[in-house]
Nucleic acid binder design. Sequence first.
RNA 1: GUGGGCGUAGUUCAGCUGGUAGAGCCCUGGAUUGUGGAUCCAGUUGUCACGGGUUCGAAUCCCGUCGUCCACCCCA
Length: 421
Amino acid sequence: MKFKKPRGTQDLLGKYMEKWSSVEERITGILRSYGYLEIRTPIFEVSDLFVRTVGESSDIVTKEMYMFKDKKGRRLTLRPENTAPVMRAYLENGLQRQGGISRFYYMGPMFRYDRPQAGRYRQFHQIGAEAIGTSNPAIDAEIINLSMDIYRAFGFSSLQVRLNSVGCMKCRGEYMGFLREKLEEYKPELCDDCRQRTDTNPLRVFDCKTCVSVKEKLPTITDHLCEECNEHFEKLCAILKQMGVDFVIDPLLVRGLDYYTKTAYEIVCPELGAQNALCGGGRYDGLASELGGVSIPAVGFSAGMERLMQILPDELDKSETTMTRAYFVVFDDKCSIQAMVLADRLRSAGFVAYVDFSMRSIKKQLKSASTRGYDYAVFVGQKEIEDKEVTLKNMESGDQVTVSFEKLVSYFSEKGVVGIE
RNA sequence: GUGGGCGUAGUUCAGCUGGUAGAGCCCUGGAUUGUGGAUCCAGUUGUCACGGGUUCGAAUCCCGUCGUCCACCCCA
C-alpha cells in the first residue's frame, strides 16, 4: 500500500474504538450530571488567538503549532488546546450578557507538532470543561472534584491531585522579580538550560531535574502570594478538605500556558511513564481581557483521552444495557432479501440486526457471528422460506428453536435486553 | 529540535561470525453436502521499509532517507 497515516496520528477502530466511545459516553454522562453543556468550536482558529493567549514564548507557539495560510492568506492554526477557543466563543456569542456562570464541556482532537512518544501524539484527544463567570474558589473545587469524579467512575480511587497557586498578574510579577534576583545569585550552580530560563521563564527552573539543590533554596510562589490570591488558595484548600478530595500542595507545579492565574492543578498517574499527567487545569482570570473583552474570571481542566485509555483495561465492565443482537445467516439472493425484510422489523423494534451477504458457508457465517459477539444467529434458507419461519440459534447456549416470521419480533421482545450484569 | 533501540507474511516474531526466507496466530478448503467457540489434516501468503555502498554473493556488514518505539525538551 502506498499511503500511511501521518506521523503521530492514529486510526481508531475495532475493539479499541468500541472502548473509546464507551469511555466518552461515561465521561460526558458525568459532565452532564454536573450541569455542563456541550460546546463545539472549530478545529482551526485564527493563529493569533493562540499566539496571544498561550504565550509568545511558550513551546506550543514557538514550535508546536500546525499553522497554515488559506487561499486568502489568512493565518490559521489547528487548535493545540481548547480553552482559548471556548472563551472566544463565549465572548463572540455575547454570553457574558446572560450573567451568572456558563458551564461548558467539550471533547475532540487537538494538534501539536511534537515528537511522538509514549502517550503523546500529534493529533490527540481531550475532554475538558470550563466554568466561566465567577472567581469563587468553590467553583475551582467543583472543577477539581469533577475531574476526579471522571477517574473515580472508572474505579481509580488513589490518583493524586497536585495543587498549586501561580498567583495573579500582580503578585506573580513581584514574585518573578524576586525569583530572578535569587537565580542570579545562584547562577554559577545552574545548568545551561536554567541560566537561559532565568531570563525567559524563571518558573521553569522548578521543572529542571539537574538543578535540584538550587531549587530547594529558591523562594516558592505560595509564600509570596498577594492577600487576595492567598485567601483564594486557602479557601480552595479548605473546601477540598471538606469535600474529602485528597490533594498534595506542590509549589513547584507550573503550568505551561501563560493565561493561568491562581489555581493550577494536575492529576498524575505514576504507571504512565514519562508522560504521566492524566489531566491538567486551573484558573485563567486573565484570558478574557486578553481577548479584548472585559475581565471575566474562569476555571477549567482538560483530560487526555489516550492516556486514560492506556490505563484502562481492554474490557470495561458494561454497566449500560445492550440490545439483543441478531446475525442473519443467508444462503442465496432470495434468502437475503427475505432476511433484510425481517432485519428491518427487528431494527424498528430497537434491536441490532446484521445481515451477512458474503454467501460463504454456514460455518463461516456462524464463526463470524460468534467472533463479532452476536447473541443470536437467524437462519433464513430455502426450508425456512417455504415454511415462513426462521431457525433461531442462541449463540451462547447453542440451543435452536424455530419461530415464524410473524412472531420473530415478539420473540425478541419477550427475551428483552441481554447483557445486564 | 536532540539522543538511543527497532523495521522480515495480514499479525506476532525467528533467521548464528554474509551463501539466496521460516514458525505460531489469522485466512482458505476438508474431516462435518445447512451449524460457531474444541481437535486433526491440507493449502495460500513476502519489493526482507526505501535508496546507495562493500562483496563472487547482503535480510545479515556500512552510509543515508523514511517510519516506529523509548527518552530529553515540553505537555494531555
